[in-house]
Design a protein around this nucleic acid. Structure first.
Length: 426
RNA sequence: GGAAGAGUGGCAGAGCUGGUUGAUUGCACCGGUCUUGAAAACCGGCGUACCUGAGAGGGUACCGGGGGUUCGAAUCCCUCCUCUUCCGCCA
């Protein structure tokens, strides 16, 4: 949620940010509407506070009168207070209505894109921040896509998943299951080596938690919901990890807070179809190791680049062809100020697959979450939040199988061998 | 799931027969005096959010969340949540 102060004080910047995110004409009117409504909120607040102040004073007087034994005078004042209370009640109701309306408007505004974000409307306009340096992988004539490899080596059963649950819930078996476990352990170890604190969070969260990181209300339909207990299955570890610091005030010396966690991620992916959902490309449940950082605003972009470098090393060590994109305004998520996507190349499919997304949210999440720090003057200010996948498993497995296939079998990258315990899947 | 008890400021812990209590006190923390330095001692400060004000300051709200009673509630009532203990169940 965008800070009201930014909307008020930097309206021009907000408007140009909205344009970069291809906002509709109605959306461009939003800042003015919000400011007007906020003015109304302030004046209503002032009237209400003044009224309450008078009521408080009168109540004190009534108390003293009773003590002084002047019951008649005290009782006479009660009716006066009663009238004021009616007035206050009316003001309270309208203040709440104004607040709700204001929130509803502000919540519709996306985060402001960082100045380096390229213009554009969709994926085709993303900037290739770092192209793949090596030769494009060429697979032999006998090369197979990962879903066929999975079947050939008995690594994954999509059919069994359908039987147990439904499509998008694969069952990993044998060396396929072991590969999953190896990757999780490897990614976690690397994150911990890099200084992140390992966390194992709940996989279901309550409404307030889902709201604070921005999943609610805008992505409600993408989460699995447990109606009986009013819980949501997490779509990413970002949700519980970042929320660990909800409603807190950090000291500057606490920065950077660095957290990592492995969790399965649950996504309904309503509306997906076709090649997108083939094999491991898009699942309802997949495993992911997430990294999260809470940072001082002055350092958050340096932090972002450190996270990018971390992810890049992982991909390099897995010996996968990858590239880094800087997302354009139109392709960026609602919450993000700047996002780098990592893609690995699926040669068998002839397409790049997103395996990581690393973003700086600036104060967009912390505003909703009330995550602050104390600055030099002792004032509280909103911290910046960042997160990234390091890494999302399913697609990594897909490109790992495809890129490392040989006539003898699938070769496990050297870095991963201590974790798998085998060098070859055959 | 059932029963009983409890949830107060960073922590500990008063207040809970309703009225100068945003809240006694101790610890922690910050500033100062003293000291060669430190400790101790002493003095002072020390919650968050919003409104208002150039500022100093003033005002409002908040004692687990929400609602109610009352002129007035941390204090009484209702409800939800959480924790503790006992019973039940169970990995």
């Amino acid at each position: 949620m965008l800070e009201i102060g930014i909307i008020r004080d930097q309206k021009e910047r907000v408007l140009s940010g909205l344009k970069k995110k291809n906002a509709s004409p109605e959306m461009l009117e939003m800042p003015d509407r919000i400011i007007a409504r906020d003015d109304e909120r302030k004046s209503t607040q002032t009237s209400l506070d003044n009224l309450l102040s008078r009521i408080n004073k009168l109540s004190d007087e009534i108390g003293s009168l009773f003590k002084a034994g002047k019951a008649a005078e005290a009782n006479a004042m009660k009716s006066e207070v009663a009238a004021l209370k009616e007035e206050a009640k009316t003001l309270e109701v309208s203040l709440r209505a104004i607040r709700d309306d204001l929130d509803e408007m502000i919540i519709q505004l996306p985060n402001m894109p960082h100045e380096s974000v390229p213009p554009g409307v969709g994926a085709e306009d993303n900037e290739v921040f770092k192209p793949w340096g090596g030769p494009m992988p060429e697979l032999g004539a006998s090369a197979l896509p990962h879903w066929e490899l999975a079947e050939k080596y008995n690594l994954i059963s999509f059919k069994d998943g359908v039987m147990l649950t439904g499509s998008g819930f694969p069952v990993y078996k044998n060396k396929g299951a072991r590969l999953q476990r190896a990757l999780i352990g490897y990614f976690l170890d690397r994150a911990v080596e890099a200084g992140y604190t390992e966390i194992q969070p709940p996989l279901m969260v309550n409404r307030e938690t889902a709201r604070a990181t921005g999943q609610l209300p805008d992505k409600e339909g993408q989460m699995y919901y447990i109606e009986k207990d009013d819980f949501y299955m997490i779509p990413t570890a970002e949700v519980p990890l970042t929320n660990l610091y909800r409603d807190t005030i950090l000291q500057q010396s606490d920065f950077p807070v660095m957290l990592t966690g492995y969790t399965p991620c649950f996504r309904r992916e309503a509306g997906s179809y076709g090649a997108d959902v083939k094999g491991l490309n898009r699942l309802h449940q997949f495993d992911k190791v997430e990294i999260v950082r809470l940072e001082h605003p002055d350092r958050s972009y340096d932090s972002l680049m450190e996270m990018v470098a971390h992810v890049e090393r992982l991909l390099a060590d897995l010996e996968l062809p990858y590239r880094i994109l800087r997302l354009c305004g139109g392709d960026m998520s609602f919450n993000s100020a700047l996002t780098f996507d990592f893609e690995t190349y699926s040669a068998a499919q002839g397409r790049w697959l997103e395996v990581s997304s690393v973003s700086n949210f600036e104060t967009f999440q912390s505003n909703r979450m009330k995550l602050r720090y104390r600055d030099e003057d002792g004032k509280t200010r909103l911290a910046h939040t960042l997160n990234g996948s390091a890494l999302a498993l399913a697609r990594i497995v897909a490109t790992l199988l495809e890129n490392h296939q040989t006539p003898e079998g699938i070769k496990i990258p050297v870095a991963l061998r201590p974790y798998t315990g085998f060098e070859l899947i055959n």
